[in-house]
Design a protein around this nucleic acid. Structure first.
Length: 391
RNA sequence: GUGACCGUAGCUCAAUCGGCAGAGCUCUGGAUUGUGGCUCCAGCGGUUGUGGGUUCAAGCCCCAUCGGUCACC
């Protein structure tokens, strides 16, 4: 029996949306799917039982963070991530490529790999395509990603091309290195190309033709306008093999999920739902609300009317509001559980709509009701934040 | 009872020689996209305890008064 298969269950005639089933050594995943992120081998504040109850099918962990603490040899010694974390479903580990980018002030890139200093204690480390394969083998996830280079936004065409080409060379090295490790693990390729349509197409073709059973689209949602991200996917998706699952790295919000599915994406992972939850941002059918707002002070009803999550079935919005105000730990659980379940229910509804052949209608209905966070405000605040940082 | 010190935003406190009353927290909104459990942005909020006086000008100087803290009786 093969360790990894992807079958397409339904496709849409009027978009690139499709529903599928991925088989992994630790169980099946029905796509489209949202994958909660547990960077340090923990979806912050939420237990594996609670994740299962929210019907999570696969979670993420991060190679960079886990290699620094507690270290991949220790996790291997303790039986790998599944045993270590008590989550027995599928796991995907990110390679640390993004941390090489986001912790840029601590690193030095070369053809061999990325030398960087630990954000924890300043110790020197080097990630190479080969060492990442070894570390991810020790971590033992079902799906693993190779070391890649995420170009900044904005960046020059030369930088974009150089990052993409090195990512391609590293992809081939990763494929060779993986042979030495665990055959039951599945290595996805990563598409780069920044915001250059030709590069995106080239990277999709190149990476799609390598023997990767799945593809992750990287380098997006790094500060660019959303329209630009969607435009890139319109170039990428047609170049990808139809029969391999497509993972949009680091995306996104509820509206991103709905739109991304129509552009051919099957898997999504993002810290946004859990991160904004910790600061009071909870998703509802009509948009994100700030549960810290005084208007919830005496709200008897649930956070989101009609939500089937543990939080909404058992607690009033007033209580959730109080927990956050009071700084109670329980808030983090209840808020995170709500947003995770919201994303997973959304993924499930998208799958059902695709199977029923009415994705376009579902999408139109969702977008008509859901008011997303203001992109203009986000841009303005990002600019102010940058300016403040330079001072 | 006597003396000293202190009363400034909801809270804790700034305010040069008498010269446009400010900050942090709270509060009200907003942001966060392959998680450094980090944060960031904006806003509301004032009869400077009260009443007089001096002065072009008083949170600041003077008098009275109310309240608080401390010390001593």
């Amino acid at each position: 029996m093969p360790a990894f298969t992807f079958t397409i269950d339904a496709e849409c005639p009027d978009s690139w949306a499709r529903a599928g089933t991925i088989q992994t050594p630790h169980g099946a995943i029905q796509t489209p799917i949202f994958m909660p992120v547990g960077t340090q081998a923990s979806v912050k504040s939420v237990s594996p039982e609670e994740l299962r109850q929210a019907r999570a099918q696969i979670i993420l962990a991060n190679t960079y963070h886990l290699m620094l603490r507690p270290g991949s040899p220790l996790i291997a010694e303790l039986g790998g991530l599944h045993s270590f974390t008590h989550w027995d479903g599928p796991i995907l580990t990110d390679s640390g490529g993004f941390q090489v980018f986001s912790l840029g002030h601590l690193r030095k890139l070369s053809e061999d790999g990325a030398a960087f200093k630990s954000h924890l204690d300043g110790s020197a480390h080097t990630l190479t395509p080969e060492s990442v394969m070894r570390i991810e083998a020790e971590l033992g996830a079902d799906i693993i990603l190779p070391l890649d280079i995420c170009a900044a936004y904005p960046c020059s065409s030369e930088e974009a091309k150089a990052a993409m080409e090195r990512t391609h060379r590293w992809a081939e090295r990763a494929l060779i290195a993986k042979e030495k490790h665990r055959p039951e693990q599945t290595l996805f390729g990563i598409v780069q190309g920044a915001f250059e349509p030709e590069l995106r197409q080239e990277s999709a073709r190149y990476t799609g033709n390598l023997p990767f059973p799945g593809l992750s689209i990287g380098g997006l949602s790094v500060g660019e306008p959303k329209a630009m991200m969607w435009e890139m996917l319109r170039y990428v998706t047609p170049q990808l093999p139809r029969d391999k699952p497509r993972h949009l790295l680091g995306v996104g919000s509820p509206e991103d999920l709905v739109i991304g599915v129509g552009l051919g994406m099957d898997m999504f992972d993002c810290v946004l739902p859990t991160r904004v939850a910790r600061h009071g941002g909870l998703f509802t059918r009509s948009g994100r609300v700030n549960i810290k707002s005084a208007r919830f002070r005496s709200e008897r009803g649930p956070v989101d009317e009609g939500c089937d999550c543990y939080t909404c079935r058992n607690y009033s919005a007033a209580y959730v509001h109080h927990l956050l105000r009071a700084g109670e730990y329980l808030y983090y659980r209840l808020g995170s559980i709500h947003n995770i379940r919201f994303m997973l229910r959304l993924a499930g509804e998208l799958r059902a709509a695709i199977s029923a052949g009415n994705y376009a209608a579902y999408r139109a209905d969702f977008l008509a009701r859901y008011i997303p966070a203001s992109e203009q405000v986000r841009e303005d605040q990002r600019e102010k934040w940058r300016a403040a940082r330079l001072r």
